[in-house]
Design a protein around this nucleic acid. Structure first.
Ligand SMILES: [Mn+2]
Ligand SMILES: [Mn+2]
Ligand SMILES: [Zn+2]
Ligand SMILES: [Zn+2]
Lengths: 138, 138
DNA sequence: TTCCTAATTTATAATGATTCTAAAGTAGAG
DNA sequence: CTCTACTTTAGAATCATTATAAATTAGGAA
């Protein structure tokens, strides 16, 4: 209950009305100790499992896009038919486990400092992402 | 003509029959000085422009997948609804220009050596890709 | 509280890249 | 030349995502 107040405030302060659906999604995404990675499908499944009243898939897409827009989520660059999102919005990199299609965080200490020495005139760097693809040995 | 011989040999030696379609695609992809990046749609457009007899879209997909399988092409990890391919199969990284949705090579000298210090037991690193997203200043 | 309006949700259709299917065509060994 | 496995092909199917447009709701004003 009182926990929701934080999310309601967060939503309000972003110009987003605190609807039942958005609060439900906030709780699922942000009311936990550790950050995590998910696809829309993952999220939909979790929501179905956890909440009683159904949230439309369109609303899930809308909400996630709004949250990404506001900077509460990051979209991870990966070659997949599905889009991956991250509740860890800090600058960091990833392993992608090709066996179970899972992202795993690589924090800055796990990666030597990356220095981009080439510049493109008139262009500004928006992000630098490292993706390390891994798979089972054999 | 005699140029095709190289591609015919290349295809044969990979266990791929040198069909008219595959040779046409080889010429378009590999008969040039510089490597480049493309999507299936780009390739289809180029083929339509250059060749007289039409190549089915299904064949283009089949061929590109076969070429990737044989290691003649790389697929670039990028978050897009389209898949990007690269005729530069060496280890290198990319800028992605979000304004015109274009990939630009970053060779090893342009990027300080990347060292991954974390290991995942039982997992083998398949690739390390850096994607630097850029966009117009203003 | 009640009204009003814009924001939001929702079911459903549309989109578009990619993959599948199964029939027709072809390469090339013998 | 014949035969068969490989290849091409048109078209259908798939599936994540986006668009649509009608119903619902949040929240400020009266
Ligand atoms: Mn992709
Ligand atoms: Mn993607
Ligand atoms: Zn992450
Ligand atoms: Zn490249």
């Amino acid at each position: 209950m009182s926990n929701n107040t934080i999310f309601i405030e967060k939503l309000r302060s972003s110009g987003l009305r605190p609807t039942r659906q958005r609060i439900e999604i906030c709780k699922l995404l942000f009311d936990r100790k550790d950050t995590f990675h998910f696809t829309i499908n993952d999220l939909n499944n979790s929501l179905t499992r956890i909440t009683n009243e159904k949230i439309s898939l369109a609303t899930i897409y809308n909400t996630i896009h709004a949250f990404k827009e506001k900077g509460y989520l990051k979209e991870i660059s990966i070659n997949s038919n599905k889009t991956y999102f991250d509740t860890n919005i800090s600058n960091h990199h990833h392993f992608f486990d090709e066996d179970n299609k899972e992202l795993i965080d690589l924090n800055d200490k796990d990666v030597g400092k990356v220095k981009i020495k080439k510049i493109l005139p008139g262009k500004k760097i928006k992000s630098v992402e490292i993706l390390v693809k891994v798979a089972n040995n054999n």
